[in-house]
């Protein structure tokens, strides 16, 4: 079983690695968007999928990262890729300050507060907060990223940048899932009271996971800013948060392959439906309902952790 899935992933990885050689720039750019949303989805998956916190304002942290990169790059000419840790820091800090007083709210109340934070931030950016966000025009003229003196400009070049970042993300988050931290967070999602009873400091873990997810979205914001070279408040509206949220739930809450597939469906399907012109979103909405009904837990849900029984281990064969 394990070997078979590794085999499948290996084939997918190999095909994706050479994809730009046989796809035209448009489809490569679609894949770039898929990759970007996969990173965002994975970062939100920590918060929604693993910790069970109902966050419908993730675009806010994405925006903080993107604006940090844009402002520092255009004002001080700092290369965008150097700004990755700075973007993570500002987005994480922002999330920490916001989440501190509200993290104890129950499910749907937390949901509206995160929506509210996202909207307040968007309105603040539109109203040119502190005179540095450029108002509704946003910020333009963000420089392209360079790797060892090589300027990344075209879709297939971004493809490998985003791909590399996605690979790192998958690797780290996979490690995190199986760590003590990951187990504790899953526990508090399943039963907060019991988790607290077992000595898990629930608000500490909730806050930590929130900040981590936000910081990762901030780094995705940096790449987004570098890719678009122009950012405006409208790119971070409520709809973006909805898309990220739906990617996580539709793909399979808490599962890395699920979220990746969710990103493929969510970014890819509207593109596939382009030939339906103005009916494309209608079909997309219907597809969302149908997929959710057919796979109520998401397409590739998180598999419950299994531990081999001591006897089985002695016998030398795991099921």
């Amino acid at each position: 079983m394990k070997n078979k899935s590794m085999y499948i992933y290996g084939v997918i990885f190999a095909v994706l690695a050479v994809a730009p050689t046989f796809l035209n720039p448009y489809w490569v750019d679609v894949l770039n968007n898929v990759g970007l949303y996969a990173i965002l989805g994975l970062s939100l998956n920590l918060i929604v999928g693993h910790a069970g916190l109902f966050n419908l304002g993730h675009a806010a942290f994405f925006a903080v990262g993107a604006y940090t990169a844009a402002i520092l790059n255009t004002q001080f000419a700092i290369p965008v890729l150097w700004l990755l840790p700075v973007c993570a820091l500002t987005a994480g800090l922002f999330a920490g300050i916001i989440a501190r007083p509200i993290i104890h709210l129950r499910g749907d109340y937390l949901c509206i507060v995160t929506i509210g934070v996202g909207e307040i931030l968007r309105i603040a950016l539109t109203n040119d907060l502190f005179g540095i966000t450029g108002g509704p025009n946003g910020i333009f003229g963000i420089s392209r990223p360079t790797v060892f003196g090589y300027v990344i400009r075209r879709p297939h070049e971004f493809y490998y940048l985003i791909g590399a970042f996605l690979m790192v993300t998958i690797f780290l988050f996979h490690r995190l899932e199986n760590s003590r931290f990951g187990r504790a967070v899953n526990y508090l999602r399943e039963d907060e009271t019991a988790a607290e009873g077992s000595g898990i400091n629930t608000s500490h873990y909730k806050l930590a996971v929130f900040v981590l997810g936000a910081a990762w979205a901030g780094m995705a914001g940096d790449i987004f800013a570098a890719k678009m070279t122009i950012i405006a408040p409208e790119s971070f509206n409520f709809w973006e948060s909805v898309v990220m949220f739906a990617i996580v739930i539709l793909g399979g809450s808490g599962s890395i392959p699920g979220v990746l597939l969710g990103a493929v469906l969510f970014v890819g399907l509207p593109e596939v439906f382009r030939d339906f012109a103005d009916a494309r979103m209608l079909i997309f909405g219907a597809a969302m309902v149908v997929m959710m009904i057919v796979r109520t837990e998401g397409i590739l849900p998180q598999r419950p952790r299994t531990y081999a029984l001591p006897e089985a281990r002695n016998a030398g064969g795991a099921p």
Binding site: P25, Y26, I230, S235, A277
Partner: peptide
């Protein structure tokens, strides 16, 4: 050849890529 920009920068960038191909 008509393509939808969805009144949104990200969709427009994709539509533009698609038109170029």
């Amino acid at each position: 050849i008509t393509d939808d920009d969805g009144s949104d920068a990200r969709t427009a960038a994709l539509a533009a890529q698609r038109l170029t191909t």
